[in-house]
Amino acid sequence: MDELLTLANLGNLAVLIFLQAVLGFDNLLYISIESQRAPLESQKSVRRWGILIAVAARIILLFVMVNLIEALQAPFFSINLPGFIEGEFTFAVLVFLFGGVFIMYTAMKEIGHMMAIEHLGTDIEDKGRKSAAQVVATIVLMNLIFSFDSVLSALAITKVFALLALAIILSGVAMLVLADGVTEFLKKNRMYEVLGLFILLIVGVVLLGEGGHLAQLKLFGYSVDAMSKTTFYFSVVVLVLVELVQSRYQRKLAAERKAVAGNKVAH
């Protein structure tokens, strides 16, 4: 125990907690949006059980990766068609590519659903078409995909399993505390749900880029490069700022139109 409570390990733990918090943002966003597809009476328990099972699965994933990291880096297969597609596909590459495609599909499907509805009050009810078990399974699966990148990043900081597991547990506790609040905020402010879906769309692009980079993938002779985390978070900040400015501007326009309409009635 004393060996764990060294200054270096405590410093690493602080960095790991910060890393899990930053990288867990998109995970929490996905959980909040996906949980609304469960029956209304089950949504709170879906979020709770989804997070708890996902944390346990992440610790198992961490244990496997700590002990089998070299084996997981070995290519499963490679494709060599010069001028068309080239790359070596490892387990990590397949996880990133599958996760990126799935997240982009989910975000685009949800955006399409929002564009297709005629009455805004009915789309929340329509999201209950999945069972609670299906939503929990989806949350756990996507949590593992989201956490794959954070686990790889954490292993670059330290390979002390106890510290890594503790950081995962603490991030899970934070998600349990915040999940209901984030979901309620999105329900009351539907415009931010659209923003969240576009952020998830960018997350899917990031995962595809990460997978392509790890695979040293070349498409039509051009290398696929990973999007830096700085670029990703800058893009998210820009999206949020645009949404805030636009919503404030729309409220100002609505107030001015109401004032003009009131003056016309008075005259």
Rank of each mutant, 00 (worst) to 15 (best):
A215S: 05
D126Y: 12
L170R: 02
L97V: 09
I169V: 13
G211T: 12
L52S: 03
T122I: 03
H213T: 01
V260E: 14
I157Y: 06
T230P: 07
L10G: 04
Q73P: 00
I103L: 11
M191S: 14
L166T: 15
H119N: 13
G212T: 07
I199Q: 11
M227C: 09
V265L: 07
N263P: 04
A174L: 15
F91W: 11
A116D: 10
G112C: 09
D123A: 05
L214S: 12
E70R: 08
L94N: 02
A71Y: 14
S150R: 03
A255N: 10
L195T: 00
I17N: 04
I169E: 02
G204C: 04
N263A: 14
L141N: 02
K258E: 14
L94K: 09
V265I: 08
F220H: 12
Y249E: 15
N9H: 11
F234H: 12
K159G: 06
L186Y: 14
G212D: 05
L62M: 10
Q73D: 10
R257Q: 13
A162K: 03
L186I: 10
L197H: 06
V240C: 10
V238I: 14
F146K: 03
V240I: 15
T90H: 04
Q36A: 14
S78D: 13
L5R: 00
L72G: 05
A116S: 10
E88L: 04
D225E: 15
I51D: 06
F185T: 11
L186V: 11
Y192F: 15
L155M: 12
I124A: 10
A254C: 04
A21V: 11
P82I: 02
E184N: 15
V55E: 07
A74P: 06
G128C: 05
L239D: 01
Q20W: 05
L195P: 07
I124L: 11
S228P: 03
H213G: 09
V177F: 03
L178H: 02
V15A: 12
L13K: 04
S42I: 08
Q20T: 01
Y192C: 04
F220N: 15
A38L: 08
G121A: 01
L217N: 08
L201M: 09
L208V: 11
G87P: 07
T6P: 02
